[in-house]
């Protein structure tokens, strides 16, 4: 494969121009015949990527958060919760997706399971840490005033742990949306298809895909950061400044 020409401004700009055209008007496939790209395909693939990302994130939250809340409230299982986070980081995303596809088969459910596996560790660890780091004096005061244990978790620990828990959710989301880019390897076409199937979409398609994926990740992160900001009590924001 020949290296592309040196980054002359003109060549540089023209490639971005091609990518822009690819997104908005589409172009003929490298393999010939059909037209690829264009807004309709972009929207279709982007929707799919958001769908699998949110599904996997939801599954990860539903599985990891209750466990983290329970362990954190009881101040037990620190080793389990923290090691899970460490181990989770060591999972090679590519190997996980490829193995799930090869061993269990391609398809939406398998993909969502694989992505959720990536999301569980940071959510579990951060939920545990966030809850267990809540000032014990607040918890003792709540208990001493006659709050029930579920009341303590719901009204005291959870609101105070929002920043840390949401930090875990954001890490999970970034990891999941990034890995959803290689979902075409598991038979689900996402924006990553533009990147992976270069033989079909050409360099313009690859660059367009890269830009779209980056924008999607940033948009997701921005949305979650806003949600976190809205969910965090004003009293905590004062505390941290």
């Amino acid at each position: 494969m020949a290296l592309p020409p040196p980054p002359l401004p003109a060549a540089f700009l023209s490639l971005f121009g091609d990518a822009f055209n690819f997104v908005f008007s589409g172009r003929e496939a490298e393999t010939g015949g059909v037209t690829v790209g264009g807004t309709s395909q972009v929207i279709e693939l982007a929707t799919k990527q958001i769908e699998v990302t949110l599904l996997a994130l939801a599954v990860a939250i539903l599985l990891a958060m209750p466990v983290g809340l329970w362990l954190g409230h009881r101040q037990q299982g620190e080793f389990l919760a923290v090691s899970a986070g460490n181990a989770g980081r060591a999972i090679p995303e590519l190997a996980l997706i490829a193995l799930m596809a090869a061993a269990i088969g391609v398809g939406l459910v398998n993909l969502v399971v694989a992505l959720a596996i990536l999301g569980i560790p940071p959510i579990l660890t951060n939920t545990y840490v966030g809850i267990s780091q809540v000032d014990r004096a607040s918890v003792e005061a709540a208990r001493g005033m006659g709050m029930s244990e579920t009341g303590i978790v719901r009204k005291v620990e959870l609101p105070l742990a929002v920043p840390t828990i949401m930090g875990g959710v954001r890490t999970a989301a970034i990891n999941i949306v990034a890995t959803a880019t290689i979902a075409p390897l598991a038979g689900i076409l996402t924006l990553g298809d533009f990147i992976i199937a270069r033989n079909v979409y050409g360099d313009a398609g690859v660059l367009a895909g890269a830009i779209l994926v980056a924008l999607m990740a940033l948009a997701l992160e921005g949305t979650l950061a806003t949600i976190q900001w809205a969910m965090t009590s004003k009293g905590l924001k004062l505390n941290r400044s």
């Binding site: 592309p4 990034a178 990553g192 990147i195 660059l207 890269a210 830009i211 980056a214 940033l218």
Partner: peptide
Amino acid sequence: TIPSISFFFLLLPITG
């Protein structure tokens, strides 16, 4: 936040 796989190809016009 930018996924690495996306980053690779954003660099494509610059570093190939």
